[in-house]
Design a protein around this nucleic acid. Structure first.
Lengths: 206, 206
DNA sequence: CGGGCGATTGAAAGACTTCAATGGGTGTGG
DNA sequence: CCACACCCATTGAAGTCTTTCAATCGCCCG
């Protein structure tokens, strides 16, 4: 359908694009998880979104460069599109434009929810929200439908997403564990005993 | 140009649309400031965006209803567009679709920045960021180009935007004042002495 | 002048972070 | 095969920041 896309691969922890770099291609993810983030001079980092297969990353522009950074949380396979050619192509394909609007709208709604999480929830609520969100995301996108949920993220990455420290994330997980909502199995996998209570604890809105 | 839009007016603190209400029209602001927000059962509220003349609000949908709430922070004049008719119209006007994509992209970039503010900045940094942002926004949109900057927001609204309490906002403003970066004049107006230091303090990225 | 609302300030409590130490798992080399 | 180093997660204790609770102040308005 779109001849302008070339498939590319990245290993875990590799960078798809860096904030500020001149805008070239954007990417539609086929396999794996990508973290979109922004980092301050002093090293503080905020992951602003998690993207899964079917999502696009690297589309947002600021001063002619990428507005954010994209990092592979797992091995990633994605289709690269030249931004300029794509824009021209969209101009002649209203339905593609509609899909783009739809994707951006969805992303913006998610971003609003993340603001609510970061601005209003306490640490354990944030972690519960995160687990419920990840669970729903992986289920919807058929990412590794393993019963023990594989997070594909270390504590530092969870912390950078939730605006907490690794220690606080660890303690919050402990609290959810002691409330018998979840359990940990080896190597960063989680079992969710009670999805309903997890959503409640994370203040997840319909 | 667009015959489907009708002009409407709201007074300060009135609601343009409520989260969950069945999606009807969305609004293009002509005058005034609108806060887009989300509220939890227990009353905690997060303002996820501030919108000024030229911006659209009430576009995002969730389960057939508005995804967020829109509240007038000042008296507001806006043009209402029926969402369904608009969508149909866009399908035949690629340039309008492009403008929509542009608006959504800009909003998404702003949302990412808000996440950074909420997740990583300390209280005084957040308040500094807010003041710098408001100053730039009002300047760009020619909202009341008064030299003492009129915030058009009470402490509670600032607090709900920054994920803080009114007391912390007040104390943070005090700190910026004592550092001679800003000064307060009567009735909620602010004078910015040093824009550069304010942006630094707020970790505002180009 | 009194009432009411929003903003400020103070003091104490609470939440999260920071610093430090421990534990567990993995991988490599002897 | 075991020892050891390394990385990540967990746990503890102290410190910092923000919130909470309470009181005061200032301003606008009746």
């Amino acid at each position: 359908m779109l001849s302008m896309g070339g498939i590319r691969h990245w290993k875990k922890h590799e960078t798809l694009f860096r904030a500020g770099d001149p805008m070239g291609a954007f990417f539609k993810i086929r396999k794996g998880i990508v973290a979109v983030s922004q980092t301050l001079d002093d090293g503080r980092r905020q992951i602003t979104a998690l993207r899964a297969p079917g999502d696009c990353v690297g589309y947002l522009e600021r001063n002619g460069g990428y507005a954010f950074e994209g990092e592979a949380l797992t091995d990633v396979e994605a289709c690269a599109f030249d931004r300029r050619k794509f824009d021209a192509f969209v101009a002649h394909n209203p339905e593609l434009g509609a899909a783009l609007v739809e994707a951006l709208s969805s992303a913006l709604t998610q971003a609003g929810t993340l603001s609510l999480v970061l601005g209003q929830l306490r640490s354990t609520e944030r972690v519960a929200h995160f687990l419920a969100e990840i669970s729903a995301l992986y289920a919807k996108r058929h990412v590794c439908p393993s019963k023990p949920l594989a997070l594909h993220m270390g504590r530092k990455e969870i912390a950078d997403y939730l605006g907490l420290t690794i220690e606080t994330v660890s303690r919050s997980i402990g609290k959810l564990k002691s409330r018998n909502i979840i359990a940990l199995v080896e190597s960063g996998e989680v079992v969710i005993f009670d999805h309903e209570r997890l959503r409640q604890a994370g203040k997840v809105t319909g």
